[in-house]
Design a protein around this nucleic acid. Structure first.
Lengths: 168, 168
DNA sequence: CAAGATTGATATTTCAATCTTC
DNA sequence: GAAGATTGAAATATCAATCTTG
């Protein structure tokens, strides 16, 4: 960040500027969608969104996964993930086993009960998207949002990796 | 939610669909930006984003605010906000006083030290936006993102109010 | 009784330290 | 020593109950 770009930031990031509005909209949309999903899941006595993330990731991958492979999907720290997995395992939705090739690692697999729960969660989550995303913008507009925001993800994601080690 | 829209959801919300991609992008961008801001604030020994939200809200409003007026800005529960305000007050950045007109309420005001801290936080937050938002899309594109996602906020926000009372 | 705010008990998250294996 | 995962201690967030005032 040079002095010049900093000055630009001062100019463009004033309240009400396009990029400031975009930030508020991103934050608001994220919060609104998460709240709606959590609300509807709770209404059907289903687990929270974080559990969905874990179960969906496990279902999507053919090979057994280790906890570290999930750290990018589930936004928690390493130890937070350990405890999250503890609770999901306690509920019988996943199982832990030992990794034969690298015995430092743990293998995670989804159980039948986990699959059943996941299938119940999918339509709840889907209905929220249907109503608040698909109902509010065309597929083309959604695609635009996706492409523009993926640039942000790429930019900020690269930044973090370039920085120093995390969690450590 | 009719049966028809539910079927549409099944069809359009498949992994890789435009609306599904939009959701992942929203979530990813939000997380990436929050992480970047928190990281940079911590690097300068400044308070977290939640504190910024409180301080910025107090600075922006001329009249003294009560805790309940902040519940929409700061995404915590009522009691979570009480404790958050406890810590910020403990740090000397805000002050609580009694509301003369309605003595159930509490008035919140930002202190001089709070204003100073807020001014130090603004450029940190601004630099993240400059780099990862303004640097990745034009003002027009940012405006598009803002308008499209504000529809989501309006849609999901209306839904929650229409539902039953919250926190209660 | 309802609204605004707080508190006690509890649950979840994080940080730092630890343990095991590479 | 570094990587992967876990654990104890501490911070933070939530739920339900409480207190005070309208």
């Amino acid at each position: 960040m040079t002095q010049v770009t900093n000055d630009i930031a001062q100019a463009t990031m004033a309240p009400g500027s396009p990029h400031d509005s975009a930030w508020r909209a991103i934050r608001g949309a994220h919060q609104a969608l998460v709240d709606a999903i959590e609300h509807d899941l709770a209404a059907e006595s289903l687990p929270a969104l974080a559990w969905f993330d874990v179960l969906a990731k496990l279902e999507s991958e053919p090979a057994p996964l280790r906890p570290k492979d999930m750290l990018c999907q589930v936004s928690v720290t390493k130890s937070g993930l350990t405890r999250l997995l503890d609770r999901i395992e306690e509920a019988g939705l996943i199982a832990r086993s030992y990794c034969p090739s690298d015995r430092r690692g743990t293998f995670l697999t989804i159980t039948d009960e986990g699959r059943q729960t996941l299938e119940k969660m999918k339509p709840v989550r889907g209905r929220v998207f249907e109503e608040h995303l698909a109902g509010q913008m065309s597929p083309a507009e959604a695609e635009t949002v996706g492409e523009l925001l993926d640039r942000v993800v790429a930019s900020a994601g690269a930044e973090l990796e370039a920085g120093h080690a995390f969690d450590a």
